[in-house]
């Protein structure tokens, strides 16, 4: 087995720009599937819209390419419809944090047993580099030419507050850890959220004069710190497993509803 059990090699190279982090992320996800030996037909990869919305094209699993921001809402139906499936919702920061924010927090609150992955490159790359809810205060973008007068979401904090049972942050620089968190998220049996910080040299990097992909990746590396060494007043972002708690997963809780209603007799 290899990642090419899950990634369609004939489709490579990807259509993403040179230096984009998306390819690294789908490789990490395929490696997680591979190491967990999940049968292809038991996986559903759900995507939204934007550059990362094309990720499902590369997967030789069930693929569900949906609408902007709605990946988690569709994934909710898929997981409830067939709780035996491994359901992964792949989103960019526009998908997860902006238009789909409501679905994200409610799926976390329900503790629905899916993995939600946010590829965070801090802007809307596909539409030309507009600022997103994860752009930083003062950032330049196609729509903040004078510097952004808004602050960024801390998505991991948001999803923890909403009730997720597993939350981790990584970067495309910390590849091996990323694979580890994805595997843990997939097998958690509760709502799992993994945020991956990554560069978008074509848009975000260009507008903010951050250089080419290698320089951007180094900057991302330098602005994070392992959660064990992280201090609350630090100006760095913690990476690692930020939450890992055990609580009842939604479809397990609903199985109890079915039992109480008398619907578990083979109907």
């Amino acid at each position: 087995m290899s990642i090419f059990t899950y990634i369609n090699e004939a489709k490579l190279p990807t259509f993403w720009c040179p230096g984009c982090g998306h390819g690294v992320i789908i490789k990490a996800l395929a490696q997680a599937f591979d190491e967990l030996e999940i049968p292809n037909n038991k996986i559903v990869v759900v995507t939204g819209i934007g550059c990362f919305g094309r990720a499902d094209d590369y997967f030789m699993t069930n693929a569900f390419h949906t609408l902007h921001g709605r990946a988690v809402a569709y994934a909710t139906g898929v997981k409830i419809g067939n709780p035996d499936l491994t359901v992964v919702a792949l989103m960019g920061d526009g998908d997860a944090a902006s238009i789909g924010g409501n679905h994200l927090i409610h799926a976390a609150r329900r503790n629905l047993g899916i993995l939600a992955l946010c590829a965070n490159n801090r802007n809307y790359g596909m539409t030309g580099g507009q600022y997103s809810p994860t752009s930083q205060f003062g950032d330049f973008s196609a729509t903040s030419k004078y510097g952004l007068p808004e602050s960024a979401f801390d998505l991991c904090a948001l999803v923890q507050a909403a009730g997720a049972s597993f939350v981790a942050r990584s970067t495309v620089f910390h590849y091996n850890n990323l694979v580890k968190y994805l595997k843990q998220g997939i097998t958690k049996g509760g709502f799992s959220f993994v945020e991956v910080l990554e560069p978008c040299p074509t848009m975000y990097g260009k507008f903010n004069k951050l250089g080419a992909a290698p320089e951007m990746i180094q900057k991302i590396r330098d602005e994070v710190v392992p959660v064990k060494r992280w201090e609350p007043d630090s100006d760095k972002l913690p990476i690692g497993i930020l939450r890992n708690i055990d609580k009842k997963e939604y479809t397990d809780a609903y199985a109890e509803v079915i039992r109480k209603a008398g619907g578990d007799n083979g109907n």
Binding site: L67, A73, G77, I80
Partner: peptide, 8 residues
């Protein structure tokens, strides 16, 4: 959206 997912 959830209906569409479940239908699939």
């Amino acid at each position: 959206a959830s209906c569409i997912g479940a239908s699939l």
